[in-house]
Structure formats: C-alpha cells, structure tokens
Design a protein around this nucleic acid. Structure first.
Lengths: 237, 237
DNA sequence: TCTTGAAGGATTGTTCTACAACTCCCTAGG
DNA sequence: CCTAGGGAGTTGTAGAACAATCCTTCAAGA
C-alpha cells in the first residue's frame, strides 16, 4: 500500500531509471567530441569536417550535426553558416567577459550561503584534496581538472539547476582558453593553496570573508590568464 | 589606403552585412515557433508534433528538428527522448530557481555599475516609458513585454555578451510562467512604477541603493508569481 | 478487481541519397 | 596590384525509408 510519502521517492527513482542508459546516438557523439575538445586535442580554430567525422564515427550527417548543435550551445564549438563548425578561438574580450560572469555568479553564491556543515562541504574538500595531490605529482592537467571541480561544486552549494548549468558552460569555455596557453603550472599552482584557504573560510562559516577573497582570487586569475594570452599572441602572431 | 584603425571598422561592417539577412531555414522556423511560444499561443504541456509541423511549415523533418534543438537550448521547449518536444510546464521549484539566478545576475550587475550617464540609460528610459504607456492603455501584455525589455537593457549595461545571453534565456523562461497564470494586471501593474523608481535611482548614480531596491523588488515579484501559481494549481489540479 | 503481458498503431531516432546554395581558392584580365 | 569570374569542395535542405521506442488497448491470470 503506497503511503503519501512514497510519491516523491518513486518519482525520483523513476527519474533515475529513466536517465540511466538513456542517451541518443547524437548525445554519445557529442560526449566523445566534448572530451576531445576539453582535453585540448583539437586546437582552437580547427574546423570539424562533417564528411571526415561521418566517415570516422560511422554516424549519419544528421546525427553528427545534431551533436554539433549540442556542443555549440555549450560554447565548445562555434557554428558559421555555410562554413562549418570550429573550435572557438577566445580573444581577450572573451576572457574579460567570462570572468565578469564568473565573479558575478561565484561571489554571489558564496555570499548567500548559510547553514553550511561538513557534509555539504565534503565535495569541495575532495576537490581540494585532489588538487593538492595532483600538484604534488606535478600533474598540472589533473590540477586544472580538480580546480574546475572545486568551482563547480562551490556553486552547486546554491542548489540551483540553472546556476549549475550556466557555470558548467562557463568553465568549459574557460578550459578552452587554458589549453590555448602553454604554461599550466604557473596558471594552476597558486590556486591549489588558495582553494584550500577558501574552503577553510567556508568551514569556519565566514562567507562574507570568503566572498571577498574569491573576488580577489578571480581578479588575479583573470590577470594571469590575460597576461599569458598576450604573451602567446606576441610570440605567435 | 587603409589606415591601421580601418581594420577593425571594416571587420565590423563585414560582420554586420554578413549577418544581415543571413539566417538558415532552421533559424527562421525557430523564430516563428519562438514567437508562438513566447506569446503564449501554445499552452505549457503542448506537444509539438513533427509530422504536423512539417506539413504546415513546408520544411523537412531535419530542418524542423534543428529548430527544435535551438529552442530547446533557449529553454522554450523541452525534449524527451522518443516522446517529442513539449512546451515546458514550470513548477514552483523552477520559479525559485529562476529568481535565484535572476537576483544574482541583476543585483550584481547593478552593484558593479559605474560611469552612468543619460546616453547609456536611454534604452532603460524608453522601456519604462513604454511600460507606463501600456499600463495607461490597460494593455498588460505590452506592459509585460516592456518590463522584460527593461530588465534585459538593465543587465546590458554590464556590456557582457554572456550575461545578456543568460538573461535572455532566463526571461524567456519566466515568460512561460507568466502565460501559465491568468491575472496579468496584478502581476505587472506594481512594477511599472517600481521600474521608474529604479531608473531614477540609477540616474542619480545611487547604484548600491538601486541594487537593494532591486533585490526586494525581485523577492516581491517572486512571491507574487509563486502565489499566483499555487492559486492556479488549486483551481486546476 | 487489480495486475500483468502481449499486440498493434503511432511517433520519434537514424540512415541514406540527392541536389541546391554557398564559400574559398585560383586564375585570367584589366 | 586589384578585380571578376569559374570551378572544386563543403554545408544546407529535402525526402524517403527503416529501426527503435512509446502509448493504448485488451485479454489472461492472480
């Protein structure tokens, strides 16, 4: 006999089951291409040829184009009419734009936080630990991944689907910029310990202080990235 | 003889010309469907049949599906695998979510504003005037449109492409919620004068004060909308 | 009565082919 | 050096076909 409280539980199970192995071919193709772009295998400016990919992936052009659309709206590809899809080349204006939105969302989320406890902060803790571990190993790719995870989990504390989604796209785009730049250590190293410091502030419940630190943090990160971008531009016209 | 400064100008003209009448069939179809959804012609929950629309619009299924994808990523349609696309039905959680993100972005944008002058505020002024005009005529549909324009122009002051885009999607989704609710006057009337008050604060350069007022404003708006939503749910199980 | 399972029609997911529309590059001519 | 135009190659769109899935109906069993 189903009790009233069962309803919510059943709904959540239903949702989980339904989204378990539920993916279209287009989504799987998108997932594959996404990882390639995010890992930096495809340098910015690369054109993704339909003909070529249809051949390699063994899917129809329609399906491939559907995958293109998915990634386009994640900001991982750009579509130019009658020219094809390309891995985006972010310029300095894009960096400014991305960091502006990023500061807006992240700082505000932190400032509004309340009722924090160890359980809720657990995912953040894991991400920080992963970053420290990667730094010890000198694996700056992994350090970058851990950093992304830290910030994604940070905004996840707000408990908003749309904020999570916006942030995911934001970070994915930023990752493109990271790959376009050579020196990962200089970009990621300082933030391993700064993430730890942020987490400590949050653990202590000092949200206002954390928000302020995060604001400075993101300004520094932006400056670093822009500087590296300009350097690269100077070397590589 | 092209001077150095010409380059940027020529590029911008080239871009403008190129994007003038530059739209694919899919984009035109999307535009058509978008207006229908935004105007509320298609009630939430409606399924958009491929077969039917292909017949009416005289486009191929491929093209139609591409249009579906575009609108899906704007939040104006939802796609359920093997079931089709539907006009979304927002529940109260969605309203909470939308307003949370909205407060985050709008308030933060306002708080960061500086160097405001009459020229930059002109679009806001026009939107407020349009809202007042619509209210006098009792045209609450137009009042709602003017309100959306006001907020879109407000965040546009930040000068960020990505903030504009996120906001556009946000407001489009909210518009769905407005349509699902019967009483437009009660929802829009109070905000005509509150928009004017906000604009006055901005004109006076009181950004912090404006941000605080906006925060309250959005809380009130959210409460109003949620209440109306619950009323509707009670009448219409 | 309620649940379970199978059959069937209807709709979406994907592939394939064909052709139109457009871009890009190259070359001839001014 | 610049411009116009032609041709090759790529993307945009159409349309038909089939596979996979969903939804409804209905009958059998507990």
């Amino acid at each position: 006999m189903p009790e009233p409280t069962d309803a919510a539980w059943l709904r959540s199970v239903a949702h989980e089951v339904r989204s378990f192995d539920r993916s279209s071919t287009a989504e799987r193709v998108a997932e594959l291409l996404r990882s390639r772009v995010i890992e930096g295998d495809l340098p910015p400016g690369t054109r993704l040829s339909e003909e070529q990919l249809v051949e390699v992936l063994h899917v129809s052009r329609n399906t491939l184009r559907e995958a293109f659309r998915l990634l386009t709206h994640e900001g991982l590809l750009v579509h130019r009419l009658h020219r094809g899809v390309f891995v985006p080349e972010l310029d300095e204006d894009d960096l400014v734009d991305l960091y502006l939105l990023r500061r807006t969302i992240e700082c505000d989320v932190v400032r509004r936080l309340e009722g924090l406890d160890a359980v809720r902060l657990r995912p953040l803790h894991d991400a920080v630990a992963a970053g420290e571990d990667a730094a010890r190993r000198g694996d700056w790719g992994a350090a970058g991944t851990a950093n992304m995870r830290f910030h994604q989990q940070l905004v996840a504390l707000a408990g908003s689907r749309r904020i999570d989604q916006t942030t995911a796209r934001l970070l994915a785009e930023l990752r493109l910029a990271f790959h376009a730049i050579a020196v990962p250590q200089r970009l990621h190293e300082p933030y391993v310990s700064r993430n730890r410091a942020l987490l400590d502030l949050l653990t202590a419940g000092e949200v206002e202080q954390a928000a302020k630190e995060l604001e400075v943090y993101l300004h520094d990160s932006e400056a670093e990235l822009r500087s590296a971008h300009r350097d690269r531009l100077r070397r590589n016209p």
